[in-house]
């Protein structure tokens, strides 16, 4: 019985077939170069829908809300945010916003225990650029899952890649709360249209 099993197992794959199979596998892996885009969509572009809150509570306080299909929202500074357009850019980030330090509370578990429940106007942090402090706000009502504490040591991330490694925080809104607030934001297309027109003047407005 045992021997019978052996032969039956091995017979589908002789060594010749195996090498043919390896060839086939290689062919599967190598893409057709003509199918490839010259510049592929980035992970942010393909995984998130991009929304913008412009002039949020104050002029030129422009923030982005990148919403993942799973409902989580990444919050950060839009390219037109005043702080990013100051001379020398952002110099420091402080998550200590009065009552609590946003970078200290650790959320744990699938149920996200200890998460702070924030309102759209709740402060996430202060960013300092050219001596001016700008309050970065939550924009959506929801649980604060994490803040990007790498910004404390390395605020330069905001100047280099505010839309990627320089994100500020990740919020988990309730689906109903998201539906309520979503229409108050600009789409990516509307945002670029709006800020391209006024991009030159936005920085000077704040100063």
């Amino acid at each position: 019985m045992a021997e019978g099993q052996e032969t039956l197992e091995k017979s589908p794959l002789s060594s010749l077939e195996k090498s043919v199979e390896d060839e086939e596998r290689r062919a599967l892996l190598i893409p057709d170069f003509s199918d490839l885009p010259s510049i592929p969509r980035s992970a942010v572009e393909s995984n998130f829908v991009r929304y913008y809150a412009v002039d949020f509570l104050k002029p030129a306080h422009d923030q982005y809300i990148y919403r993942h299909a799973n409902g989580l929202c990444v919050i950060g500074l839009a390219p037109s945010h005043a702080a990013l357009n100051e001379v020398g850019g952002v110099q420091s980030v402080d998550f200590n916003v009065g009552k609590s330090n946003r970078s200290e509370l650790k959320v744990t578990g699938k149920r996200k225990r200890n998460a702070q429940h924030l309102q759209p106007d709740s402060a996430l942090c202060y960013v300092c650029a050219d001596g001016t402090y700008y309050t970065v706000r939550c924009c959506v009502k929801g649980s604060l899952l994490e803040v990007n504490d790498r910004l404390i040591k390395n605020p330069e991330l905001l100047n280099l890649a505010a839309d990627r490694e320089g994100y500020i925080a990740i919020i988990m809104p309730k689906p109903t709360d998201w539906l309520k607030v979503k229409d108050s934001f600009l789409s990516y297309e509307d945002y670029t249209k709006l800020r391209h027109q006024v991009s030159g003047s936005s920085a000077s407005n704040v100063c």
Binding site: I30, L36, L72, L145
Partner: peptide, 28 residues
């Protein structure tokens, strides 16, 4: 990862990359 953060616990996990190799694609 953000893409699973909604249902998994927020944690920092250590993982090992044993080895890597780049295979160039002709014409790119």
């Amino acid at each position: 990862p953000i893409r699973v953060l909604h249902r998994r616990s927020p944690l920092e996990r250590k993982r090992i990359i044993h080895w890597m190799k780049i295979e160039k694609i002709v014409g790119s």
